[in-house]
Design a protein around this nucleic acid. Structure first.
Lengths: 227, 227
DNA sequence: GCAAAAGTGTTTCATCTACACCCATGC
DNA sequence: GCATGGGTGTAGATGAAACACTTTTGC
């Protein structure tokens, strides 16, 4: 049996609103978090959701996602990755809203994210302590998290989360927090040192037992790996 | 140099048309082909493009893709896979059109696909003999083809392209045509027999040297593998 | 009977995984 | 000096790729 369609059948989609929703992942307290905002207006007033917004007529979806990211956490030049587009007819209770999702990976800036317009709070939320999310955002977030992990396994996405120079242990902790699993220290070292964009600075990090060596990234070579 | 945007700036997207474009892959003459249609109206009149169309207000993008598939090649119950959403501001020369792409894998039906409405021809086109495509459809097609190959490597997507009973050689030819590379016969046999949804019918295909054995799929077990 | 295709197992190689010891530093 | 963490190499398991011979059938 086929789905029944209501009788209004048109050949265009002018009454549809297009939005982006962003899963902005970042670190705080050595754990992976995602930025959530709380709605101050209906529908889903008081519920936590992924930050997002309507696409302007003269920008791309990616531009819109970058704009959301800039407005909330004041970072630019962070790559946004498109994940999927969600178009269920009743995903928004009032109007027809279709959304494309993006994810990004940032180091949380010093200043707190600002809740504006329809929002009254913003918060970095650990992935294992998520509240219920409004709309279908839980599904969107889960899909985005899977895409993030998938991408990290094949590409060195995470080095911009680290300070200028860092120890391999610190890099490993970032990977472990994102992937949600522990990694073998020696295997991890071998894997990332087999890439050629890590430079041993021949300095040791002071104040840490064992005297770990500091590394920094060769930005040019990292760029080659990412393309 | 960045693209110049027109000065109209609004906060919603009501003037945007949402469409789907479908990369419908199928077989003819032992080679992988994709269904192309030729536009009979401006813009891009006379150019070949992927079949597609506007989403109706009361259907999902996926519904729209399924509708396009049904109208063109009269098949249903074939899974459509979403690939990506394309939103460059000037990808359509007249209006703002944002499109989501899907791919599907079908066995070309007996009847030829019908060109209707804005189209004057439809044709199964071999991937190495593609004409120039209108809009940004060459990029969309390339992305969809990559997604198809990716999916086939991890999931047995292609068995509905084969007749009720078939030889492993025939299955291998389907895989080779889709992936665009030759496969080792023994490694291929081992791999797909390690799945448990292939049933040896104990019959041999007549009229073929070597007397190859015929197999059929256990639909229930195949379904488990696909989920 | 001979040419062409089908059926079958083993070896090699690369990759991932698990694991133990010595050395450097902080306290 | 001792406890903690950093640095290093190897052996085993697992999966992918390469490869040759025998059997069956069409002609």
């Amino acid at each position: 049996m086929k789905t029944e369609y209501s009788p209004r059948v048109t050949t265009d989609s002018h009454a549809v609103t297009l939005t982006v929703d962003c899963a902005i992942f970042g670190f705080a307290d050595d754990s992976l978090r995602v930025l959530l905002v709380r709605r101050a207006v209906e529908p889903y007033r008081g519920d936590w959701v992924l930050p997002g917004g309507a696409m302007y007529q003269n920008e791309t979806l990616e531009d819109a996602a970058i704009r959301v990211l800039r407005d909330l956490v004041n970072v630019e030049d962070i790559p946004m990755h498109q994940v999927a587009t969600y178009s269920a007819v009743n995903r928004h209770p009032v109007r027809r809203v279709i959304t494309s999702s993006y994810f990004a990976l940032v180091s949380p800036e010093d200043h707190d994210p600002i809740a504006r317009e329809h929002l009254d709070q913003a918060r970095w939320c650990a992935l294992n302590e998520l509240p219920e999310l409004g709309f279908d955002h839980r599904i969107i977030l889960d899909d985005a998290y899977e895409a993030l992990k998938q991408e990290l396994r094949s590409q060195p996405l995470a080095f911009h989360l680290l300070p200028e120079s860092f120890t391999l242990k610190e890099a490993q902790e970032v990977y472990e927090a994102i992937l949600g699993e522990e990694l073998d220290r020696r295997n991890f070292r071998r894997k990332i040192l087999s890439y050629d964009f890590l430079i041993n600075t021949a300095e040791k990090k002071p104040g840490v037992k064992g005297g770990p060596e500091l590394y920094r990234v060769d930005d040019v070579k990292l760029e080659e790996h990412m393309s």
